[in-house]
Simulated scan of single mutants.
Amino acid sequence: MIDLRSDTVTRPSAPMLAQMMAAPTGDDVYGDDPSVNALQEYAARLSGKEAALFLPSGTQANLVALLSHCQRGEEYIAGQGAHNYLYEAGGAAALGGIQPQPIDAAPDGTLPLEMVAAKIKPDDVHFARTRLLSLENTHNGKVLPPDYLREAWAFTRQHNLALHIDGARIFNAAVACGLPLEALVRYCDSFTICLSKGLGAPVGSLLLGSHDYIRRALRWRKMTGGGMRQAGILAAAGLYALQHQVERLQQDHDNAAWLAGALRDIGADVRRQDTNMLFVRVDPLRAEALGHYMKQHDILLNSAPVTRLVTHLDVSRPQLETVVHHWQRFLSQP
Results as ranks from 00 to 15, higher is better:
V116Y: 03
P56T: 01
A152I: 07
K49F: 00
L113F: 07
G141H: 11
G227M: 11
A174C: 11
I214T: 11
M294G: 07
R229W: 00
R216T: 13
A183K: 15
S196C: 14
I299Q: 03
S6A: 13
R129D: 06
G261T: 04
P334A: 09
A44L: 03
L95R: 15
G79Q: 05
A78F: 02
L46I: 00
L163M: 09
M228P: 00
G31H: 08
D314M: 13
I2Q: 04
L55T: 07
Q71N: 14
N137L: 09
H297S: 02
A241V: 06
R264F: 01
S134C: 08
D108A: 10
E41Y: 01
A162N: 11
D3P: 04
L199T: 10
G96Y: 00
S13D: 11
G73R: 13
A289S: 13
P102N: 12
P180R: 12
A168K: 14
M228K: 15
D123R: 10
S316Y: 08
Y87M: 02
M277W: 04
I2G: 07
A93T: 08
I214F: 08
P102G: 09
M277C: 10
P24A: 00
P107M: 06
A18L: 11
L301A: 11
D189V: 03
L313F: 00
D298G: 05
P146S: 10
R169W: 00
Q243E: 15
L249G: 02
A154F: 03
Q319F: 00
A235G: 06
V125D: 08
H292R: 14
A262Y: 04
Y42M: 05
L309D: 03
A231K: 14
A260D: 02
G198V: 04
G238D: 08
Y187R: 04
